Each structure stands twice: as C-alpha cells, then as structure tokens.
Simulated assay, not measured.
Amino acid sequence: MRLLSATLSLTLLAAACTAGAAPLPAPHRVDIPATGLTLHAQLYKPDGDGPFPTVIALHGCGGLSGHSEAVLPRYRDWAEQLLKSGHAVLLPDSYGSRELGPQCRVKERRVLARRERVADVNASRQWLLQQPWVARDRISLIGWANGASALLWAVRPQSSSRGTDPDFRSAIAFYPDCRISSGLGWSTRVPTLLLIGAKDDVSSPSACRQVVEGARGRSALARIVVYPGAAHDFDLANLPLRAIAGADAELPERGHIGTDADARRDSQQRVTEWLAR
C-alpha cells in the first residue's frame, strides 16, 4: 500500500512539474517590406518591453512551415532554446513569401542563398532596427543548411551596408554548403561559428574547414567545430540516423541525416555561449 502511495505521489509530482512548465508561445506573423515583395516572418518574443537581444533564424531548403504548422519542429525547438536565454527570434520565410514550396530538389532555384536570401536577411535586420523592443546592438544570425549558406554570404565584408546602424553581433551556421565559399577567399566581418558533423555527406566538412582556415589570414573572427561521427541534421531531435531515400521534396537528394545526441547537446551550449559574447 505504501508502494502504491509513493508511486501515486511521484506520478502527481511529475504531472505538476509538466503542467508548471511554460509552453512555447505561439509565434506572431509579421510582414516585412522588402524589395519587390512583402517578406512574411514568424516572431517569437519574450514577455515585456525589452530591449531584447534578437536572432534572425534562417530555415533550410525544406522551408519554414509544414502543411498544418507555421514553424516546423526543428525551428520551434531552437526558438524555445533561444527564448530561455532571453532572445527574441525572427524567422523570415524566404520560400512561402514567394509562393514557393521546398527547394531541396529544385535544379534551377529562383531563390538563391547568395542573392534573394541575403536580401531577406538585410530586410529583416532593417525591420528589427525599427522595433522599440529590440536591442539594436545585439542582433545575431543563425541558419541551417541552405540558410547557413545564406548566412555565410550575408556576413562577408563585401555585404556590409556601411551605414551607421550597428552590425550583426554574431552568426552561427549549422552545416552550410561551403563548397562555393571555399573557392572565393571567404572571410567574415562578425564573429561567426560553423558547426558541422565529420560524417556529413550532404554538406562538406572538408570545404568548411578550408573556408575557416583560409579566413584566418584575413579575419580572426571565424571558428569551426566538427563533431566526430555526426551526420547532417545532427541537432534535430529524435531523428534516427538513416540514408535519405525516396522523393521527399523537403530533403536533399542523397546522403545521411540523423540526430547525434552528444553533438546536439554540445551545440546548444555553444550557441548560448556564442550569442552571449
């Protein structure tokens, strides 16, 4: 009887803890004026007036939203992590704003990382600079895959607006495709962290190493972490490692994807520390 009572007490305690955990608030859609279009974005913001450090989060080639959800679980998961550290999170929808679906398997893309997506980054930043709840000197970037590739273009010295407004505070790129940047003498004007798995056969760890090592001669602001044994999408929760198969438009054509628990945990800690710089 005492065992049953103890078990019931523990069950009730666990339920109370779960009930007491604050759920992730629903995002608010915002419309951002941009060149030639209205850029739709989803915004997660802490309660209060701020000013809050803010992160512009750039989705991968699968897009930002799903069939019935404004923000896919990967990005909701990271938004929750960032909100816990006091950040607002703005997620511009580069594809949905142009009435496009996933672009992973599109051969001739109309939205390029180096062009349209960089324009979306700059429009998002300009909109944030006008918001009274934003800490203007603490706007950072984070991106995944194609969004991370756009990030690498956006932080190059050549992409600077050269205005009087504060620049990005920092940037974090999860498994970008570094193969083009590696041949262009890439460097960065803001502290930039690259995170990639050593077994990523969708992107290229060796090209990303080359990008960062080459940048050291021109800039001391780039760092890279290569996780041994980790594949593409290592930070996505609860995704067993598997080879990409079939014709899923939201996935690359080939390679392997899957969670690496150690890399996921370490990357969460590194993101928190990098943004706190």
Rank of each mutant, 00 (worst) to 15 (best):
A19M: 09
A19C: 07
A19T: 07
G20L: 12
A21I: 11
A21D: 11
A22L: 07
P23I: 03
P23Q: 11
L24S: 07
A26S: 13
A26G: 01
H28D: 15
H28R: 14
R29V: 10
V30N: 12
V30F: 07
V30L: 09
V30W: 10
V30R: 04
V30T: 08
D31H: 01
D31W: 09
P33L: 03
P33T: 13
A34T: 04
A34W: 05
A34H: 02
G36D: 01
L37K: 09
L37H: 15
T38I: 15
T38M: 14
L39M: 06
L39P: 00
H40V: 13
H40A: 06
H40C: 11
Q42D: 14
Q42P: 00
L43K: 00
L43A: 12
L43V: 04
Y44Q: 03
K45V: 06
P46L: 07
P46Y: 10
P46R: 05
D47T: 06
D49S: 15
G50Q: 02
P51I: 00
P51K: 05
F52Q: 03
F52C: 10
P53V: 09
P53N: 01
P53S: 07
V55Y: 06
V55N: 10
I56G: 02
I56H: 00
L58Q: 10
L58H: 11
G60F: 00
G60W: 01
G60M: 01
G62V: 13
G63N: 02
S65Q: 08
G66P: 01
H67Q: 15
H67D: 15
S68W: 15
S68G: 15
E69Q: 07
A70C: 12
A70D: 11
A70F: 05
A70Y: 01
V71P: 01
